[in-house]
Simulated scan of single mutants.
Amino acid sequence: MSKENKAQTQPAPRYTKEQLVEAKRFTTSEKDILTGLLAPDKTYTLDEAVAVINRFKEREV
């Protein structure tokens, strides 16, 4: 199996709510959104966390 195929078949890493909130990748306001919306007993990929942030930002007020 080539390196490309291996990379495509490996699942994305998953992180806890605490790990995502501590990540330098997110701004303070994004961390606040994650703190309020992520479940403490679940794990999330970075893509899932970004999707949560985007849905929150795009919602109607």
Rank of each mutant, 00 (worst) to 15 (best):
Y44G: 03
L37S: 08
Q10K: 15
A39E: 12
T16F: 08
D32A: 13
D47R: 12
A7W: 02
L38W: 04
A49G: 12
E22T: 07
A51V: 02
V50Y: 07
E30H: 09
T43Y: 01
Q19I: 06
Q10C: 02
K57F: 01
E30S: 14
N54W: 05
A12R: 11
T35R: 10
N5T: 08
F26C: 08
V50I: 14
K57M: 13
E18F: 04
Q10F: 07
S29A: 05
G36H: 09
R25S: 09
V50L: 15
I53D: 03
S2N: 13
Q8L: 15
L38T: 08
E60D: 13
Q19T: 11
R14L: 06
R14T: 04
S2R: 08
N54Q: 13
V50C: 07
K57H: 02
S2Q: 03
Y44I: 00
R14M: 12
T28D: 14
K17T: 05
Q8E: 13
Y44R: 08
L38A: 05
E30K: 06
G36N: 14
A39F: 05
K24F: 10
T35V: 03
V52Q: 12
T43D: 06
E48C: 02
Q19G: 01
K24T: 11
A39P: 00
A39H: 13
D41G: 01
E18R: 12
R25G: 00
S2E: 10
F56R: 08
K57G: 00
V61Y: 08
A12Q: 14
E22L: 07
E30N: 05
P40R: 09
S2L: 06
T28R: 12
T45N: 06
T28H: 12
I33V: 15
K3A: 10
K57E: 14
K24P: 00
K3V: 09
E22V: 00
E48A: 14
Q19A: 15
V50K: 10
V21M: 14
G36F: 06
P11V: 00
D32L: 10
I53N: 02
A49F: 04
K3D: 11
L38H: 01
Q8M: 07
K57I: 08
K42E: 11
V21Y: 03
D41M: 02
L34T: 07
E48S: 06
M1E: 09
K31A: 03
R25M: 12
D32G: 10
N54M: 11
V61S: 11
F26P: 03
V50A: 11
L37C: 11
Q10L: 13
T35P: 00
K42P: 00
G36T: 03
T45Q: 06
S29C: 04
K24I: 04
T35D: 07
N54I: 13
L34N: 09
A23R: 08
T45H: 02
T16C: 05
V61F: 12
K17L: 08
S2V: 02
V21C: 12
D47F: 11
